[in-house]
Design a binder for these strands. Sequence first.
DNA 1: CTCAGTATACCAAGTAGTAGGCAAATACCG
DNA 2: CGGTATTTGCCTACTACTTGGTATACTGAG
Lengths: 186, 186
Amino acid sequence: MNTKTTLLNSAEDLVRSRGFDGFSYSDLATQVGIRKASIHHHYKTKADLSLALITRYRGVFMERLAEISAQEPRASGRLLSFLDLYRDAMRGGRSLCLCVAFSVTQTALPKDSTAQLEGFHADVAQWLETVFRLALHDGTLRGVTTPRAEAHAALATVEGAQIMARAAEDATRFEAAIDTLRARAI
Amino acid sequence: MNTKTTLLNSAEDLVRSRGFDGFSYSDLATQVGIRKASIHHHYKTKADLSLALITRYRGVFMERLAEISAQEPRASGRLLSFLDLYRDAMRGGRSLCLCVAFSVTQTALPKDSTAQLEGFHADVAQWLETVFRLALHDGTLRGVTTPRAEAHAALATVEGAQIMARAAEDATRFEAAIDTLRARAI
DNA sequence: CTCAGTATACCAAGTAGTAGGCAAATACCG
DNA sequence: CGGTATTTGCCTACTACTTGGTATACTGAG
């Protein structure tokens, strides 16, 4: 496989398990099996790497959401699949989904990267809003009133749930926090 | 004032605005106006500092919750005051509440510190559970069914909302994500 | 013969933490 | 009380190490 994508895959793994500040080019180098300096050939700076990671993830994730929309006609099915997506990304509490891992990064990412991240959040919130809006018509989710507000709330909840689960290294924390959302499916 | 508590105050500020990994003893030293090595006299290692921070915060925060319980007899009032507590801690999107800032820390904190953090989360979840349980009787919150699950969900939501607001450097994101919780007060 | 990909060898800056000294406050004791 | 020991709080100066990044040379395939 392409070294460049191998690097991206390994880097994604590292970001999600240890955070963007939690790994160095040195770590990445040993994991991939080339020398540290060689990474710079593919991703000139760590900032460049961050941008490549977020951009790819955004694309892949939005594709997944599109698949869900295609396969699940009902609002309830879409919401449950969405929750599964976030749950699976956790790999049992030792990992975060990439967008959470980056949202949580403390060091200043370059402008491009934060823009991608914001765009990603906006896209997901938008998608969720359409789900709740659909629920107003198909009635497969309990107690929906304001789709836009509910979308933001749901996104915050899954992200917060991931963080709490990772902090406790206990994946069931995620489930506990998500239960009320799941229970809304009819 | 005591240098030791001045250090703790400044450190809390730094953790909340830049993360525990985002500041060094050197930063803290210049902010307080003593030399880096002198900090080690008060807090032997950065791990010790983390423990002191979390322990103090846990105490103060639980006191606040107790005050709320004392002043607000109704579940709705308690929930709204709780949300205000988290909103105020954000200082307009540039800061996190300390427990979120630590939950989000990627480097391995010492065992004592993570234990305090988990205890803190458990305490807050417990407090929220009693609020929702109260709501079952006084009826001042809409749509309460399972207090325990709702407590975990609410906690995840406020934590996630803080993170999204900070990532976007936009405090209104917090409000947007919290709106559905706020709207449940009768 | 070029050039992408890798390597060796380095750098400047920053990290947590240590060693040891020095002055002022405090405690102990005759 | 007076004087001696001890502690407190801070300092300068350092170590040992990691970080992201650079300069430059080698290698092999097209």
